[in-house]
Amino acid sequence: MTPLFRKPVIFAFCACLILFSSGIAGAQQTLMMATTTSTDDTGLLDYLMPLFTKDSGIDLKWTATGTGKALKLGENCDVDVLLVHAPPAEKKFVEDGFGINRRQVMYNDFVLIGPAGDPAAIKGKTVKEALAAIRAKQSVFTSRGDKSGTHQQELALWKAAGGPMPEKEPWYVQTGQGMLATINVAAERNGYTMTDRGTFIKYEADHKGNPPLKILVEGDQVLLNQYSVITVNPARCPKVKADLAETFSKWMAGERGQQLIAGFKLLDKQLFTPNANE
């Protein structure tokens, strides 16, 4: 016979393989969530989830992607619950019967950031004026370009600013990547971009409080970034753990979740404002 298993080393090698294969987690109640990169990148979920698991006994796992893909995963019944921030798309998602019980849980706001030199001189302007100035100056503006909540918000702002939607203009750079990557591209190109405040604070923290890009426009009403929790519709997706999703959704919108959100700080700055009760 072929002496495949005669040598002890080969046997040990196979034993190692088997050892690794014992690595599947035990059967706890597991809730699967799709969320956006901003909640994951800022560390909010790393902060909240152990506390949620302690309170509820539910093990929450999440995959962080753009809102577009998160909604698609919900549509395909691959996740139980969504934590996303693109209100118009969310409303359509619920209207189409893909989700139920959309609950607003918190917001942060978007800001326009750019180099300290501010070549298009947008500092202190309204969003509408600022975007018009960037377009007029043809200053570099980086966009997520990935159908994420942030990207959809940015497009809405361009639309509100009037004029043709920027698409192929040389100064309009679509990265197709996450928020922090997009900020980094803007920094490299000495350009402007729009980001949620939470990600920007994280970016500031990464640069020891002195980043190359600064907040230039903020506080405009149109820059509000609303996050909601949506349960994937169990009528369409029978395998969805709707009860666990509801538990999570209520916990986030409830007193405990809201307090914790308010208490999540980076560089002593609050990143998200709870607003479930509004």
Partner: peptide, 8 residues
């Protein structure tokens, strides 16, 4: 990929 996307 995640860390790179985050700029880390």
């Amino acid at each position: 990929a995640l860390e790179t996307n985050k700029g880390m």
